[in-house]
Simulated assay, not measured.
Amino acid sequence: MTGNTFTRDELIQAFAGFEQTVDRAAHTRDWDPWVDQYTDDVLYIEHAAGTMRGHDEVRPWIWDTMETFPGSYMTSFPSRWKVYDEASGRVICELDNPMRDPGDGTIISATNISIVTYAGDGKWCRQEDVYNPLRFVAATLKWCKKAQELGTLPDVAAEWMAKVAR
């Protein structure tokens, strides 16, 4: 709990800004503005990567994650649905993680639940990403096999597939 109460309108507006920043980062591949929307002491819980505190831990993680395959082939992170909890200052949403078109228009993705806690003034003080990592591995393998079938599998994906499919 943040100890603050935010209006629904304030949460909706703040989260719209959050989504715009994430969308811009996905398109420009510049992850710094994404990190900068968190408070300096942000608590980021990522079930596969662990718990990170502050920009100094979150920033290198997001850059590495999103600029290394398969994250580097994810094109956007739209929310499929969201719930606003004014009393806790939280937004809970399901985020989609679609990968690039492998060459035939196929969309392959996996989803996660994110719980973000608003701190006020356009900043977020906590995020928790909840998902099954095996679903992301399965989606990525499916993408790799489709790209391989189409003759569009990049070397970085082939190397990833060789490691994971052992």
Score class of each variant (00 low, 15 high):
residue 164 V to M: 15
residue 132 N to Y: 05
residue 131 Y to I: 01
residue 3 G to W: 06
residue 77 F to K: 00
residue 86 E to C: 13
residue 20 Q to K: 13
residue 132 N to P: 07
residue 145 K to H: 15
residue 89 G to Y: 05
residue 72 S to L: 06
residue 54 G to M: 05
residue 95 L to T: 05
residue 73 Y to V: 14
residue 73 Y to F: 12
residue 49 A to T: 03
residue 37 Q to S: 04
residue 162 A to T: 15
residue 107 I to Y: 00
residue 62 I to H: 04
residue 146 K to N: 13
residue 94 E to F: 00
residue 148 Q to R: 15
residue 116 V to H: 14
residue 90 R to A: 10
residue 73 Y to S: 10
residue 115 I to M: 11
residue 25 A to P: 03
residue 118 Y to P: 01
residue 163 K to D: 12
residue 26 A to L: 04
residue 125 C to A: 09
residue 76 S to W: 10
residue 121 D to F: 00
residue 87 A to I: 10
residue 73 Y to A: 10
residue 5 T to L: 11
residue 38 Y to A: 03
residue 154 P to T: 09
residue 97 N to H: 10
residue 153 L to S: 04
residue 103 G to H: 06
residue 141 L to H: 08
residue 137 V to D: 02
residue 89 G to M: 08
residue 121 D to V: 03
residue 79 S to M: 09
residue 151 G to M: 08
residue 77 F to P: 00
residue 141 L to M: 14
residue 116 V to R: 13
residue 36 D to L: 11
residue 39 T to N: 06
residue 85 D to E: 13
residue 3 G to P: 07
residue 88 S to P: 00
residue 28 T to E: 11
residue 111 T to P: 05
residue 121 D to T: 10
residue 84 Y to W: 09
residue 164 V to T: 15
residue 162 A to H: 13
residue 104 D to V: 07
residue 80 R to V: 13
residue 85 D to I: 12
residue 145 K to C: 05
residue 87 A to S: 14
residue 111 T to Q: 03
residue 159 E to R: 15
residue 68 T to V: 02
residue 162 A to W: 05
residue 159 E to F: 04
residue 73 Y to D: 10
residue 117 T to K: 12
residue 57 E to R: 01
residue 39 T to S: 06
residue 65 T to C: 10
residue 80 R to W: 05
residue 4 N to G: 01
residue 79 S to R: 07
residue 48 A to Y: 14
residue 83 V to R: 11
residue 10 E to V: 03
residue 22 V to T: 02
residue 51 T to F: 04
residue 11 L to R: 10
residue 109 S to F: 07
residue 36 D to I: 10
residue 121 D to M: 00
residue 163 K to F: 09
residue 164 V to K: 11
residue 47 H to L: 06
residue 164 V to E: 11
residue 77 F to G: 05
residue 45 I to T: 11
residue 139 A to Q: 06
residue 126 R to I: 01
residue 130 V to N: 07
residue 132 N to A: 12
residue 29 R to W: 06
residue 52 M to V: 01
residue 124 W to I: 09
residue 114 S to F: 03
residue 83 V to D: 03
residue 42 V to G: 02
residue 105 G to C: 09
residue 54 G to R: 02
residue 66 M to V: 00
residue 74 M to H: 01
residue 143 W to C: 08
residue 47 H to C: 07
residue 17 G to D: 12
residue 86 E to A: 15
residue 64 D to W: 06
residue 25 A to R: 02
residue 80 R to S: 08
residue 67 E to D: 14
residue 1 M to R: 09
residue 13 Q to A: 13
residue 36 D to N: 15
residue 157 A to C: 05
residue 49 A to W: 07
residue 127 Q to G: 08
